[in-house]
Simulated assay, not measured.
Amino acid sequence: MAQLSGDDALAEWHGGVFLGRRADGLCRQRELNFPSGSEFSYSNTNFVLAAILVERVSGESLRRFTKRTSFDPLGMRHTHWRDSLNEIVPNRALA
């Protein structure tokens, strides 16, 4: 299985509903932007696709799935994925 990374040759995600309820633009892409591994162009596309996959397989949003399977068991009570970019996150840490 390939590593999930943000340096792929797929088109950048630009639109639809946050975290992939729609992936119309990706479905229309017929070829890579460049041969995989030959160039670097940061993209969040793989992460959006991973969220879509988690939702379809588990029936849960990425937020609920990772809370249940990762964050809660690790005691990470204040860590989660946002369901909306408009969500206000109290005490949010930025790098």
Results as ranks from 00 to 15, higher is better:
D83Q: 12
W81G: 11
E31M: 10
E55M: 01
A51C: 11
E87A: 07
A95I: 15
S84G: 08
R21C: 12
I52M: 14
Q29Y: 06
P35E: 11
V54Q: 06
D24N: 11
R63V: 06
T79W: 12
A51Q: 05
L26M: 14
L26I: 14
D8S: 14
W13Q: 04
R56F: 01
R68F: 01
R56K: 03
F18T: 01
S58D: 08
R82A: 14
N46G: 05
E60M: 10
G75P: 03
F18N: 02
R22H: 14
F65T: 00
I88H: 07
A11F: 07
S38L: 10
R64W: 06
F18I: 01
V89K: 01
S70V: 15
S43K: 09
R56T: 02
Q3R: 09
P90N: 02
G16R: 04
V54Y: 03
F47I: 11
L26F: 15
V89M: 05
S84K: 09
K67P: 02
G15F: 02
L4V: 15
L94K: 10
D83I: 04
N46T: 06
I52E: 06
R64F: 08
N91G: 09
N44C: 10
S5P: 08
G16Y: 07
D24A: 13
A93Y: 12
C27L: 15
S38F: 06
H78R: 14
P35H: 04
G59N: 02
S84D: 11
R77G: 00
V54W: 02
P90W: 04
T69D: 06
N44T: 05
T66M: 02
E55P: 00
C27I: 13
R22P: 05
A50E: 02
N33L: 08
T45E: 00
L10S: 09
A93D: 07
L94W: 11
R77E: 04
T79L: 08
G59W: 01
S84V: 01
H78I: 09
Y42P: 05
E87R: 07
A2L: 14
H80P: 00
G20S: 08
L32Q: 04
S41T: 12
F65R: 00
E12P: 06
R64I: 12
E31R: 14
N46I: 00
L4A: 09
E60Q: 15
H80I: 01
W13I: 05
R30L: 12
S84P: 02
T45Y: 01
S5V: 07
D24M: 05
D7G: 07
L85E: 09
L26S: 13
R28I: 10
A9H: 05
A2G: 12
S41K: 12
A50G: 08
S43T: 11
G59C: 01
F65M: 05
V48K: 00
G75M: 03
F18W: 03
S36L: 10
T66W: 00
R63C: 08
E39M: 14
G75W: 04
N44G: 02
R22L: 09
N33A: 03
R56H: 02
N44L: 03
Q3H: 12
L49M: 07
F71S: 07
